[in-house]
């Protein structure tokens, strides 16, 4: 069997729920999150909070969230959107794809535990500590399509609020976004599975045979 077919076959065998479509609608309860498996494609509807490097470091160092932001059973999105104010002074998101999540690996597990986050959206996957936190607290990692800023911005129906704009700048601020049918793939689930770990191991073995 050629190597690539074996990978596709391997993933299909390993993750039988592969490419099943799952609407994931707020409230994001532990039960809904625990029901998800690696390979599930979800369409997310509800509120998400953006947070990237500056926010993670701030929370890790004991920084407090503004009182009107509650991440319990919430979704954290690794994203620095392009935003413009329209003629009525309302914020509009014009580009909103995910940023690379691995930079938040030093902070993510703690933030999932401390704040009760149910899902983290990003790209590129995260490491073992985050995977362990997903299992312990009932959280999943949702991989959005990196670079697909327009498709994903179309899913943002409203900007509810923005915080830390002054301190962190627009890309690093916390944007509270209402999204509808936002597409993402579960690549790390709450049962200890990680597509990233598996693809890395597979590609490492394939490369070793070709050196």
């Amino acid at each position: 069997m050629p190597p690539l077919e074996s990978l596709v076959g391997f993933i299909e065998f390993r993750f039988p729920a592969f490419l099943a479509m799952h609407p994931l609608v707020a409230p994001f309860t532990a039960a809904k999150i625990r029901a998800l498996n690696v390979g599930d494609e979800v369409f997310l509807t509800g509120t998400v909070f953006t947070g990237r490097d500056a926010v993670h470091k701030y929370l890790h160092e004991g920084g407090k969230l503004p009182p009107d932001i509650n991440l319990r059973d919430g979704i954290l999105y690794h994203c620095g959107p392009v935003t413009l104010k329209d003629e009525h002074g309302h914020w509009k998101v014009t580009a909103a794809g995910p940023t690379t999540s691995s930079r938040e690996e030093p902070y993510q597990a703690q933030i999932i535990g401390d704040f009760g986050v149910r899902a983290v959206i990003g790209k590129g996957g995260m490491g073992e500590r985050t995977l362990a936190a997903c299992k312990e607290y009932g959280c999943v990692y949702l991989h959005a399509i990196g670079g697909a800023a327009q498709v994903l911005a179309e899913c943002v129906k409203r900007v509810r609020s923005v915080h830390f704009m002054e301190e962190f700048g627009a890309p690093e601020a916390i944007w509270e976004l209402e999204v509808e049918a936002f597409p993402a793939v579960v690549t790390m689930d709450s049962h200890g599975n990680s597509l990233h770990r598996d693809v890395l191991a597979h590609s490492q073995a394939e490369l070793a045979r070709r050196l």
Binding site: V82, G147, A148, A149, Q150, V151, A153
Partner: peptide
């Protein structure tokens, strides 16, 4: 999704990627 994104960005004259 990438293909759709390319088409959408061109049509709306907005950034393909937010970065």
């Amino acid at each position: 999704i990438i293909e759709r994104n390319i088409e959408l960005a061109k049509r709306k004259s907005q950034p393909i990627c937010q970065d």
